[in-house]
């Protein structure tokens, strides 16, 4: 694990090389050896690779979401347009969500989302020249798999690194909170986290904890969070 800056060469070599976020295969090969394409970093962060060296990526924090296919996101419906919805997921372009991309939806029976409703969806199409598309079901099984409209609850914003951390089962925060009171969470990779708890006090506690643990905010550790929760009396 090492620090890279944009433009730095990355020594990624593998017969079946896969490049993750923050890496780019250089198109202008100045070296005569064209069989070994050069890989450069495109963002500052720490360089990681899988155990066998086939997958490489750069880990860094960011606040602006750029859509990538198959990522789950939390969005707000901003428009109803005929057969679908426009959803704000924090990207430069609004995403489109087809009214038929829900579990059990048909021509007759479509979900009725209002402007301002929250949805938990998966990015089904992310191409730089097209607007992102969302779906609220698994295209193979046609089951919701937890996606769909989010009713009630509260949305917290955090950095993208924090939302990835929350999705990591080994991260301490959600198990710690879950040990104190029952809660529901939907983590979007776009830096939006939907939370729902029985009492307002608990909702506030979760929101505060996410804000404090976020490396972009406070970067609090497990001990600090325990103390904070004690002080909030939850």
């Amino acid at each position: 694990m090492s620090i890279v800056l944009p433009g730095e060469n990355v020594p990624a070599q593998h017969v079946n090389l896969k490049l993750g976020p923050g890496l780019l295969q250089s198109t202008t090969s100045t070296s005569s050896d064209a069989s070994r394409p050069s890989i450069i970093a495109t963002r500052a962060g720490t360089l990681h690779h899988s155990a066998n060296g086939a997958k490489w990526w750069v880990e860094s924090n960011s606040r602006r979401y750029v859509p990538a296919a198959q990522e789950s996101v939390v969005g707000v419906v901003t428009h109803r347009a005929g057969e679908g919805y426009r959803v704000d997921i924090g990207t430069a372009h609004p995403a489109s969500l087809d009214a038929l991309a829900f579990e059990g939806a048909s021509r007759r029976n479509k979900p009725n989302l209002k402007v301002g409703s929250l949805v938990y969806a998966r990015v089904s199409l992310a191409h730089k020249d097209m607007e992102p598309e969302l779906e609220c079901f698994d295209a193979q099984t046609r089951k919701a798999e937890g996606f769909g409209e989010l009713k009630g609850g509260f949305v917290v914003r955090c950095s993208l690194k924090m939302s990835r951390d929350l999705l990591d089962p080994s991260h301490f925060l959600l198990p710690l909170l879950g040990g104190r009171f029952p809660l529901e969470v939907a983590v979007g990779m776009n830096g939006r986290v939907w939370i729902s708890a029985k009492e307002v006090k608990q909702t506030i506690a979760i929101a505060r904890c996410i804000g404090e643990v976020d490396t972009d905010g406070g970067g609090m550790g497990i001990e600090g969070v325990k103390k904070l929760l004690d002080s909030l009396d939850v």
Binding site: L5, T42, R43, R64, V66
Partner: peptide, 11 residues
């Protein structure tokens, strides 16, 4: 560099 959301080829 801090934003990390705009790809760069150099510094």
């Amino acid at each position: 560099l801090n934003a990390g959301s705009v790809p760069m080829r150099g510094v």
